[in-house]
Design a protein around this nucleic acid. Structure first.
Length: 897
RNA sequence: GGGUGCGUAGCUCAGCGGUAGAGCAUCGCCUUCACACGGCGGGGGUCACAGGUUCAAUCCCUGUCGCACCCA
């Protein structure tokens, strides 16, 4: 016997372990089945499961479970990435509590420590994914720092280097002065900050007291100014172009140049140019061949090395001693000190409050410093061509399609990808330097040494590059490195290209684009055929979930409280195309009701002896009720399949919901009640078999989204052994003979019952009060149907008897119209005739409005001649039906008098 | 400033040329032997606004306003 209610906590863990131990999630490379592959977007090894994971993993699991049932050899590849900065931060924080730093420990000891951390506490998210029910092929789990994947990274680096697609360059990078590393421009977040515009006078050389005033948001960088720029068309400054100014404080002479970068409308129209500390200024510097002087070090402290020799003393303008005193000050302190000194010396014209965009590190939040350094770059511009081509040619497609534009826009002006990071944790760059800094890129030490020996003609000592690669560099290889590349493994041949990538739009650039570039370059084929982009999870008010707002919901807590199935179903039901998912506790609670409903329906079936019948053929069912529900089930299967085929998770969930609740429970089981208790054994047996068949369809249809409760029922009804539903086959629609007539019949009975219920409810007839129903003007077929469904109508509409009307209409009857027939419900003394008259008048009013609308349409000459004939025909039929209803309602009204 | 998406019932969202839909909420009634995480019934919408195309527009086109996100 099934329990009175479904207890997810009692079964989820056990069932998951059963699946896993039976290798139910495993790919079967030798099966001869067609493969279907999804690569997990590898979660960060330091991460814990949040709602965003719950969303994306639920969708992926639903797809993979569905495809598995459809008979594909499914591979859902699991794993995690090593998250360079995040992981290093975590471990450094632990070290700090022990009073240690990684610098004291040294590189090797630190790396060892990180591995220890990884073994003990890393990848906790993989356990949490199991709570979700995710059917990942765990024995194939990979980590981006695995030996195999690291080999792939080295292979790619060496190859791209040899092809000239990886190179070193000295240019501005986004520098995080806290981590002291370059970071990607994608990891920089511009924030609107309240700052100031400082207006500073720079004296024009050889022009007496003339000055030019520049407006700047960063006065401290003036130590590194190498020009002042004005717009070439700016009349105010035209005569100054080509002249020089003498920089306050340092006394250096710098030119006034004409450049369209300066906006005459902004500030004074004259801007100071600091090429080594600003991206725009860098470009100006390049255009005008300006020196690039760095005045901030790796921690964004003032450093004077590059300006020391040019310091000069000018009375009231420049003071080398003051400048030297700035050495080692932070950006913020230097700014304060410099502004104070300028003011004192009379060079500060004014200060204006000013809001502007300041770059911050997404991780850690430090203010980013543009900094001139030598880094390793990947020539993304060259790699992007084939990636774009893959989309334009249709070999890979975004769903929804509009993300293609986002992808193209970014790809079109893609910047060189800075791939080096000044960290220890990660793939160390396979580059070695000789005594003269000559670079040798190699797979390993020995290879590098051999190259160097050949190059120098003698053994030399090599120094390996200290830096590591951007984590996304290894993630970009994920679709083939996990399958064994660079070896030619059977898996690689079988599962690449993968079928679909499921992810959020926030990482199209970070990851999707880079996988596409690397896949095209190294595998000569796309990494995935479809790219399904889903929305973000938000709270019920549409706010982004975030730690700082405290509006996040822990998916594990939801699972504890409502069960994994309820959460998964909620996610599916709310995942429309291209829409964010607004999820609150209440939503999950609401959809849990569906799980409970399914459970109770199954329990009811069990109580009534419903069991799967061996050899049962739904196509040969005789009873109208059986034929009807089987046809309805077929429609549900078709809808659900189509929905999944087009990634309409909401439609999939809701078509199942509607079928289970509004067809199977509300009508089929209710209609089946009298049959289950009937003395007609043959009919009862057939309906039991039909119920078992339909329940089996329901469980299979829902397995992909709610695997726990469905498997529990599957097993307890004896459809298969425990844990076997996951490998059952996806249901096929079956439409039995005579289904159309059965549907017409059942639909009519449903309309009849609903009509009686409405009348009774509106007339406030107590449910306990039964009444007969007489049919007036009914066709023989309608009478026959009403007769056959006597019992169900009686119970469901609180009717004592259904019969054709004999003689006159009893006084005090309520009346209603169903198709051609008028229902007469004698309720003398129970209803208020005035109320009944009012009710009928309202009905009539509605019907007349409809008639008027249709008549107007048909009265339009243009409509009749120009609309499609079938539409006109449909309107004519509609008008006839509507007029019939009006006639019957009028007749009913006149009978009341 | 450039781009994308969205404004449909109180809320969350479907529908996207031919009679406006669902879930939740709300209001009645119901301890009917699967389910009160339930059953039955009702009310509630100039489909953001203004033009245009069409026999017909919530749906297509143009513009306006509002909201969100992405890029600069």
């Amino acid at each position: 016997m099934l329990n009175k209610s479904f207890e997810p906590a009692q079964i989820e863990t056990r069932l998951y372990e059963l699946w896993e131990s039976r290798k139910a999630f495993s790919a079967q490379p030798n099966s001869g089945k067609k493969p279907f592959t999804i690569m997990i977007p590898p979660p960060n090894v330091t991460g814990t499961l949040h709602m965003g994971h719950a969303l994306t993993m639920t969708l992926q699991d639903t797809l993979i479970r569905w495809k598995r049932m459809q008979g594909f050899d499914t591979l859902w590849q699991p794993g995690t990435d090593h998250a360079g900065i995040a992981t290093q931060m975590v471990v450094e924080r632990t070290l700090a509590t022990e009073g240690k730093t990684r610098q004291e420990m040294g590189r090797d000891a630190f790396i060892e420590r990180v591995w220890e951390w990884k073994e003990q506490s890393g990848g906790g998210i993989t356990k949490q994914l199991r709570r979700l029910g995710a059917s990942l092929d765990w024995p194939r789990e990979r980590f981006t720092m695995d030996e195999g994947l690291s080999r792939a990274v080295r292979e790619v680096f060496v190859t791209l280097y040899n092809e000239g697609l990886i190179y070193r360059d000295r240019r501005l990078v986004n520098w995080d002065p806290v981590f002291r590393s370059a970071i990607s421009d994608l990891e920089v977040e511009s924030k609107d900050v309240a700052g100031n515009l400082w207006y500073i006078r720079y004296p024009v050389e050889g022009a007496g007291d003339a000055t030019i005033t520049v407006a700047t948001t960063r006065p401290e960088t003036m130590l590194g100014d190498t020009a002042v720029a004005v717009h070439p068309e700016d009349e105010r400054y035209k005569n100054l172009i080509g002249k020089s100014v003498r920089l306050p404080l340092t006394g250096r002479l710098i030119p006034i140049v004409a450049d369209e970068h300066s906006d005459p409308e902004k500030g004074t129209g004259a801007v100071k140019i600091t090429p080594a500390h600003d991206f725009n200024d860098f470009e100006v510097g390049r255009r005008h061949n300006l020196p690039m002087i760095s005045v901030l070090d790796d921690q964004a402290r003032v450093v004077l090395d590059e300006i020391e020799q040019d310091l000069s003393a000018v009375e009231g303008l420049a003071d080398p001693a003051f400048v030297r005193s700035l050495s080692g000050l932070s950006r913020e302190e230097a700014r304060k000190t410099i502004v104070a000194r300028l003011e004192e010396d009379g060079w500060l014209e004014k200060i204006e409050p000013h809001r502007h965009q300041v770059p911050h590190a997404e991780r850690g939040g430090a203010v980013i410093e543009p900094r001139l350094t030598t880094q390793w770059y990947c020539d993304a511009g060259k790699l992007s061509g084939p990636a774009v081509e893959a989309i334009t040619s249709g070999r890979a497609s975004f769903i929804p399609k509009q993300w293609e534009n986002t992808f193209f826009a970014w790809m079109r002006d893609i910047q060189p990808w800075c791939i080096s990071r000044q960290l220890w944790w990660g793939h160390r760059i396979p580059a070695w330097y000789g005594p003269d800094e000559h670079v040798f890129v190699a797979h390993d030490d020995a290879d590098a040494q051999a190259q160097a020996n050949a190059h120098y003609g003698k053994p030399v000592e090599l120094r390996r590059d200290e830096d590591v690669l951007d984590t996304w560099f290894s993630s970009a290889l994920w679709p083939f490195s996990t399958l064994g590349w660079p070896d030619k493994t059977p898996e690689l041949a079988r599962y690449y290209p993968t079928d679909v990538l499921v992810t959020g739009f926030d990482i199209i650039f970070f990851w999707v684009a880079r996988m596409m570039m690397m896949g095209q370059h190294f595998m000569h084929d796309v990494p995935f055929r479809n790219i399904f982009i889903h929305g973000l999870v938000r709270d019920e008010h549409g706010q982004k979930m975030s730690k700082s707002k405290g509006n996040g919901i822990d998916p594990l807590e939801l699972i504890d409280q409502y069960g994994a199935d309820a959460m998964r179903f909620t996610i599916c039901a709310l995942t429309g195309i291209g829409r964010d998912v607004k999820l609150g506790r209440k939503r999950v609670e609401d959809y849990r009701a569906f799980i409970t409903k399914l459970w109770n329906a199954a329990r009811f079936c069990e109580m009534n002896g419903v069991k799967p019948v061996e050899g049962f053929d739904p196509a040969t069912v005789k009873s109208p009720l059986g034929r009807w529900i089987i046809a309805e089930a077929a429609a549900a299967i078709t809808e659900a399949t189509r929905a999944l085929d087009s990634y309409r998770f909401d439609e999939y969930a809701l078509s199942c919901y509607r079928f289970v609740w509004n067809r199977f429970c509300d009508w089929f089981l209710e209609f089946a009640k009298p049959v289950f208790n009937s003395t007609d054994e043959a009919e009862a047996a057939e309906i039991r078999a039909v119920a078992a068949y339909v329940l089996g369809v329901i469980l299979r249809l829902l397995q992909p989204v709610i695997p726990f409760v469905t498997d529990t029922l599957w097993h307890s009804f004896g459809y298969g052994e425990e844990g076997s539903l996951i490998s059952a086959s996806w249901p096929e629609p079956v439409v039995p003979a005579g289904a159309e007539a059965a549907q017409a019949e059942c639909d009519q009975i449903i309309r009849l019952i609903t009509e009686i219920r409405t009348v009774r409810a509106e007339m406030n007839v107590p449910p306990a009060q039964k009444a007969p129903v007489f049919l007036k003007d009914a066709l023989p077929q309608t009478l026959e149907h009403a007769q056959r469904w006597q019992e169900a109508i009686g119970r469901m509409a609180r009717v004592s008897e259904v019969a054709p009307l004999q003689g006159d209409i009893p006084h005090g009857s309520a009346q209603a119209v169903v198709d051609e027939a008028t229902l007469i419900i004698p309720l003398a003394g129970l209803i208020d005739l005035d109320a009944e008259r009012a009710r009928l008048k309202k009905e009539l009013g509605k019907a007349e409005d409809e008639v008027a609308k249709t008549e107007k349409k048909l009265g339009n000459e243009n409509f009749v001649t120009r609309a499609k004939p079938e539409v006109v025909q449909e309107m004519r039929e509609r008008l006839e039906a509507q007029q019939g209803e009006c006639v019957r309602l009028k007749a009913a009204l006149s009978r009341i008098g």
